[in-house]
Design a protein around this nucleic acid. Structure first.
Lengths: 158, 158
DNA sequence: TTTATCGTAACATTTTTTGTGACGCTTTTA
DNA sequence: TAAAAGCGTCACAAAAAATGTTACGATAAA
């Protein structure tokens, strides 16, 4: 994966933070600091996974299809496809090298296990968790700026 | 991370497969199908982590510092540094957006957990495991080519 | 019928990763 | 002691991947 997962979480948290109204890709783009098309590309993937829905035309925009409590970050990762955190080296190994010819196959098992572990970990977080963490952090930052008090946000995942 | 982890495992497995003799970066490069400098760069990292040692000059080359049973893939990942499987988006979020300003911090917790999960998974594999898997795969391939018989390699990790 | 949106393709740019050549240093060995 | 075979590493080149941009069609609300 690249930074797309980060962006996706950013987007979903933003949508979660304004449950009453649709948000346009243009607006999201400003918030994230990028171009609307980039955002639409991401949202297209999330929509395929059934996490968000869009409405075209005037007054349109994007919204979550479920409450944020019911969107797990493991689903977000799945939505972004197999963009490979764990990537094989693509070099052509020497044809006579037994290791080179077979190490990929061996690695596949390793990667499958690691990917499962990641998904299990991400399953412990929801978009609602993220929104809460964000708000806590914001509060803390504000408090610090104001009077030096700082709170430690609670960590809900395992 | 990129494909460096894959390459590193390839290299270490290769070293494990010839315990009696040192292997030159040139040779490894041929096996992997790349340039010797690339290999040396990788090996430099693995050396810093104490997994391999090199000897310059004629007759020199690379060798493992321990038996392959005692090198866990989690150590390999650690050796390659924090090259981020889980990467933040680097866009500058809009200064007024609460989500944008704080989502990174929230994500850090998520990523820390995921990284731990990956490491725990990789800890279940050693270089010796990889070598065994490679040999099983090679045998299977050979058997298939010869007479159609195929074996399923055992999967040792959890 | 104008306007605000999405959808998407084509192209441009930037960033990251990988590869290459060159050259100095070290140790073995003839 | 000089040649040879290694490593170590820098600077640069090339390739690949990711991200950003422009443009334009389609659609529905106003």
């Amino acid at each position: 994966m690249n930074s797309r997962f980060s962006t996706a979480v950013h987007i979903l948290t933003l949508l979660a933070s304004t449950p009453e109204e649709r948000v346009t890709s243009e607006y999201i783009a400003m918030s994230v600091g990028t171009n609307a098309v980039v955002i639409r590309r991401q949202l297209a993937l999330l929509r395929e996974a059934g996490l968000v829905e869009s409405k075209g035309a005037r007054g349109g925009g994007w919204a979550l299809t479920r409450t944020p409590e019911r969107i797990r970050l493991s689903e977000v990762r799945a939505a972004l496809g197999k963009e490979a955190s764990f990537r094989m080296h693509r070099n052509e190994p020497h044809p006579k090298c037994v290791v080179g010819q077979n190490v990929r196959q061996a690695l596949e098992g390793v990667y499958a296990g690691a990917e499962q572990a990641v998904m299990a970990s991400l399953k412990g977080w929801t978009v609602a968790d993220m929104l809460r963490e964000v708000r806590l952090a914001a509060q803390a930052a504000h408090a610090t700026a104001g009077n030096g008090v700082k709170r430690t946000p609670r960590n809900p995942a395992g």
